[in-house]
Structure formats: structure tokens, C-alpha cells
């Protein structure tokens, strides 16, 4: 089953065309990465799925259902949770409240406050402190935990390693591999080759808003991956 399919999508912010006929798909149980330099449109792919970037041509389908128009909450209700770039922890809410917000979509499954805190014990320890008062790494755990609270079929992570220390990125990679082993599909948008190499099975390379390469990660070296991004 294909969880997410973009078919020849042109994505816009206002009158500015960012995505040029982007096609990609993520199937159930897959771990897929989108690679590319800064400013090539990686985040716009996510924003198109969230209705933040306007889709003027092409089609986006969640779980086989074509979506038009896409509103901000459409993806969540179709079982697609997003860990946005910059984490976007809601100011003024505690860790517990940020996690509760993640459950707003009301999908049942294995993830709840207790199971998320078992995965990230620091969230239980700091449950009643403001989410924005935590360190960058802890906020990333909170952002992933909030997304898991939706019990998603597909988890989209936009630059999750941004601003994190290498040791935290290692922990993040281990967590994502573990999540993938628990039937959560992953779409990873990253520039960190090491993270992509450890987590993803397939990749797409984006350049100037278009997919210029794709393939499988297995058997490739990190140097190969870097070469693909240097298109």
C-alpha cells in the first residue's frame, strides 16, 4: 500500500514556483529519504503535503486517496504525522500538553503518553515544564513524541538532526531505526548523510525543485550518497 504519493507536483509559495513536477512515493513499512542542498525545495515537499505550499499542478495522495484541496490538518487525519523543521514546540504549553496536542487527531494505537515516555524517559521527568524550556535535543524528542502520539502510519521528519550534537544524532538514528522496526514508515528529509545512511532504504535527490536521482541506499557508501547530492 502506498501511504504517500506525489505525482508531477508543482508547488508554489504565492507566485513563486518552487517544485517542478516532483514525483515520489512512500509505501507501507518503507524508510525513504529526500536529499538535497539548502534551498532546493525539500521542505516545500512537506509543506505541499500540509497545504502550506500551494499545489497548482499534479496530485498528492494519502493512503491512496487523492487530496484536493489540502488543508493543514488533512495529512494528520490521513495518518501522516510531521516532525517539522525547527521542531515548532508550542510555547506556553508544558511537555505533557505538547504531547496531548499530538493526540488531537484521535487515532488509536500503541503510542500514548506512557509509551512515548518509555521511548524518551526525559519527557516523563520534565512532563510539567514548558516544552520550549528544554534543550535542542530534548525538544527534538518532544517533537518526535508529539508526532508519535498521533499513531501515524507515516512519520515525516524534516531535518531532524539540525542543530543537534553528533552524540544526539546517533541516538536519533537508533530511535528512527527502532520505530521503523515497529511498522512506522518514515520519510526523512535530511542533509546529514550519516543519518540517511543508517535509517533510509531508498532515497530521492532533489535539485532546483525537481527530482534528479533516486535509488536504494543498500550497498552504497557514504561517499556515494554525498556524490549524489553534489549533482
Amino acid at each position: 500500500m502506498t501511504l504517500l504519493r506525489l505525482q508531477s507536483v508543482d508547488g508554489y509559495y504565492g507566485g513563486a514556483r518552487i517544485l517542478h513536477g516532483v514525483s515520489l512515493e512512500v509505501g507501507a513499512g518503507e524508510r525513504v529519504a529526500i536529499l538535497g542542498r539548502n534551498g532546493v525545495g525539500k521542505t516545500t515537499v512537506v509543506n505541499a503535503c500540509l497545504g502550506i505550499a500551494r499545489v497548482r499542478a499534479g496530485q498528492i495522495a494519502f493512503q491512496g486517496q487523492a487530496q484536493a484541496p489540502i488543508r493543514h490538518f488533512t495529512a494528520a487525519r490521513a495518518g501522516i504525522a510531521v516532525v517539522p523543521q525547527g521542531r515548532r514546540i508550542v510555547p506556553g504549553l508544558t511537555v505533557r500538553e505538547n504531547l496531548a496536542l499530538g493526540a488531537a487527531v484521535g487515532r488509536s494505537g500503541k503510542w500514548n503518553f506512557e509509551s512515548v515516555c518509555d521511548l524518551f524517559p526525559i519527557l516523563r521527568e520534565r512532563a510539567d515544564t514548558p516544552g520550549t524550556a528544554m534543550s535542542g535535543g530534548q525538544q527534538q524528542m518532544l517533537a518526535i513524541g508529539r508526532a508519535l502520539m498521533a499513531n501515524p502510519a507515516l512519520l515525516i521528519l524534516d531535518e531532524p538532526s539540525e542543530g543537534l550534537a553528533p552524540v544526539i544524532v546517533d541516538e536519533l538514528a537508533a530511535t528512527l531505526v527502532r520505530l521503523a522496526g515497529e511498522d512506522t514508515s518514515i520519510l526523512l528529509i535530511e542533509q546529514n548523510f550519516s543519518l540517511v545512511h543508517r535509517v533510509a532504504q531508498r532515497y530521492y535527490v532533489l535539485s532546483k525543485g525537481a527530482v534528479v536521482d533516486q535509488g536504494t541506499v543498500e550497498g552504497m557508501s557514504m561517499a556515494d550518497l554525498k556524490k549524489h547530492v553534489a549533482v
Binding site: 502550506i52 517539522p84 508550542v90 504549553l93 496536542l101 488531537a104 508529539r146
Partner: peptide, 13 residues
């Protein structure tokens, strides 16, 4: 505080 992130969680803002 953040209507976009709230909507991303499935809330019809």
C-alpha cells in the same frame, strides 16, 4: 500561539 502547528496535529482551526 501557533495555529499552523496546531492544525498539523489534526485540529480544524
Amino acid at each position: 500561539v501557533d495555529p499552523v502547528t496546531t492544525a498539523m496535529q489534526g485540529v480544524d482551526t
